[in-house]
Structures are given as structure tokens and as C-alpha cells.
Computed example of a mutant assay.
Amino acid sequence: MEEPSRADRPRRRHRAEAYLRREHLVHRTHRRTRRDGHEPRPIPTMRRTITLLASLLVAFSAVTSAQTPEAKASTPAITRIAFLGDSITAGVGVKDSARERYSTVATRLLAGPRAAITEINLGQSGRALCQQNAGYAESVLKQNPDTVVIQWGVNDQYWGFSVAEFVARYDALVATLRLAKPQMPVVVMTLIADFRLAENQDAWIGEANIALQEIAARHRCHLADTHRAIDHQKTFYADTVHPNTAGAELMAKTLVTALHAQPLSPENAAVSFDQGNEVRFLQNVFLPKREGVEPQWIHVSDINSKGMSIEGRLPIAIRTAPIYPAGKYRITIQDRSGTVVDTIASDVGWSKMQSFTFDPKGHDGPFRIEIMLEKSAGKQAVIDIQ
């Protein structure tokens, strides 16, 4: 751009000041002497005006940044953490419960070099969540915790309660905590395997764990997947149900990792399961084509309208939640390296659901499944469905 001449510079400055004056940013005074004989206040220069504007913008940014969702979602400092559960929470199975139970180890890890955190251990040996009296959630809140960890479940299975009743009681507990303290971190712990009875109890525990992960997502809780961490390894057990010192330490580390991670949510949903031929999660249906009876892990994450990620070796028939407008879609499956494993054409009608089969075909995961809406003319265009 050509440099303005000296004669043009004052003219340009006056035009700029006139513009700012119209926007109520500069209040120019008249050059003639005021009636009281005093000289008028000096005219603010462009540099002073810009400096003022910059200061205002910085101050405005500081205020608004404190109100962003990210700032609100940040985990507050933990000072009082309550642990709810059965004898596993109470510390049965470890040699020194006062030092080695998972709740004490987790509290110690969370505190680190900082000021001590108060551990509120509310473990009840031999009891189940479904055996708690009305007002149980309120009794927890009376302890004034700023973080709550929930470990209930193995005794609900043992004492013969149905998955439906257990899940209903669990959901009501979390809902009450959320209503009372909306910003308080709540940690949902999945049930570890129970070897107390000769018959296989994995079906009850597997179904319950899927439901707990959905509760965590709907109520925006942190998820400590201790079932997946211990993974039926009896070396982490002191007996048929209680973790030993090593098992308790692994549970504690899984819990601490969960608190440092973002909570689950309907927009950031994930589910893990190691058994079951039909898994329903947030209206998504997964039908693994299992062979044999040995547990085989499948982890589905980043579930949203754009697709999902899958870790697993089994083919899975998938039916998504009904969130897609009618139209023609292209579903692309990529492996860890980004190589396209499969491309599937999908027509969505009145049901608004995608229905397709994921097949790893011997490729290495994790796999990324992308769901994209196509234009009818055949020209592919990625559209953000959210």
C-alpha cells in the first residue's frame, strides 16, 4: 500500500477521530475557550483511545473466560471425599485396612504433597444398596462431602436383587446427590467379578455394569472401570470377592485416573463390556458375534452423531440411536493406521437409525467409524449433523 503524504496524515487522523466520536468512544471538546475562562480538556489521541480499548477488552476477556463451560466443568479441589459401598470399601481382604484399603490409598494419592484430604469411609460389610433405608442419600450429604465415590453392587447380586431394582436404586442415589450438589464430582465404580457362587454370576454383573456406565453418562459422572482393570484376575483377590492389597491399590489408581479425566456425558459417551450377546447403551444396540464362553473385551468410545471408536476383535452388528435425518449416508471404518477397512452405504428412513456391521477383518484397532451424510447428486460432502 502507498505511504500517505504528510498533508494527508492529519486529514486521515481527523476522519478516524470523527468515526470514533460517532461510536461514542471519543468525546471531542471544542477548541474555543470555555465561558468560565478555563482551557478545554485535551482531545484524546488515537494512541490513548486504542490503549483504553485494549484495556477494556482484556478486562472483558478475563470476566467472560471465568464463565466459560470449561472453567465451570473443572474439578474443584477435593477436601472431603466420601466412599460408599460394602465390605470392599470397608477394607476386608487387605492386611491393614486403615492403610491399604482402596479408599485410603486413593485419598493418599489424591492428596500427594498438598494438604491432607479427609477420607469419609462409609463402607458396610455384608450390606447391599437395595437394603439401605429411605433417606440414605441424605445421610451421605450430611457428611458434607465435596466428592463421592460409589462402589455398591456385588452384594445386591449376592442377596438376589434384580438388576432392574439395583439400577433404579443406584440411579435415584446419583440423582439425589446431583440435585443437592450439581458441581460435585461423583465417581461410579463398576462391579468387580464375584467368585463366591459356583454358578456363573457374570451375566448379572455384566448387565449391571453396562447400566452403571449409562447412569454415569446421563448424570455426567466420572467412571472408574475397576471391572475392566482387574479383569477376572484372581491374583488381585484375597478370597472369592475381596481384593487383596495389590487389588485394592489397582482399584485406587483406577479411581484417581478417573477423577483426573473428564466425566462421561451424553455427548462424550463410552461403554465397555466383556460378555453378553446384546448390549443396549443410550439407545445404541451392540450385538457382538461371540464364539465360546471366554470373556472378550469390547470398548466403544466417542459415541456421537459423527460415529464412534471401537477397540475389539469381534464383529459387531450395530444399530445406532435414532438421531439421523432421513437420507443417504456413507459409513467408513478405519483401522489404527488410518487404512480404510470397509465402506458401507446406508439409507436412513423414518426410523432415523443407522444399521450396519462392524468387522475388523484381521486389522489392528482401535477402529474409527465415521458416519457422513452424502448429497443426492453423488458428490460427497461431510456435514456436521450435531
Rank of each mutant, 00 (worst) to 15 (best):
T176C: 10
N144Y: 00
F236C: 06
V271W: 05
E370G: 02
K352F: 11
Q380G: 07
A111V: 01
A73R: 08
L264K: 09
H232P: 02
P288A: 08
A229R: 08
S61R: 01
N155K: 07
L282S: 02
A62C: 15
Q157F: 13
Q132M: 14
Q334Y: 08
K181N: 11
F356V: 04
I192V: 12
F161Q: 01
T45W: 09
A193H: 10
I120Y: 01
D384A: 13
L259V: 14
I371C: 10
T118P: 02
D274G: 12
T75H: 05
E267D: 15
G37E: 14
D384V: 09
D96W: 09
A321F: 07
R220F: 01
L250D: 04
P185D: 06
A381H: 09
H27R: 15
A90N: 09
I331N: 10
A71K: 13
F358L: 03
N268W: 07
P266C: 01
T235F: 04
K289L: 10
I205F: 04
T45E: 14
N284S: 00
Y102H: 08
P266D: 09
I43S: 13
Y102P: 00
M353W: 01
S65R: 12
I120P: 00
H242E: 05
L109Y: 06
A216I: 05
Y329N: 09
E165F: 01
I215R: 08
Q67C: 15
G307L: 02
I333V: 15
A59Q: 13
A326F: 12
V26P: 07
G365F: 04
I78W: 00
R108G: 04
S265V: 11
K142A: 14
M46G: 06
E214Y: 01
P266F: 07
E3H: 09
F83M: 02
L84K: 08
E214D: 05
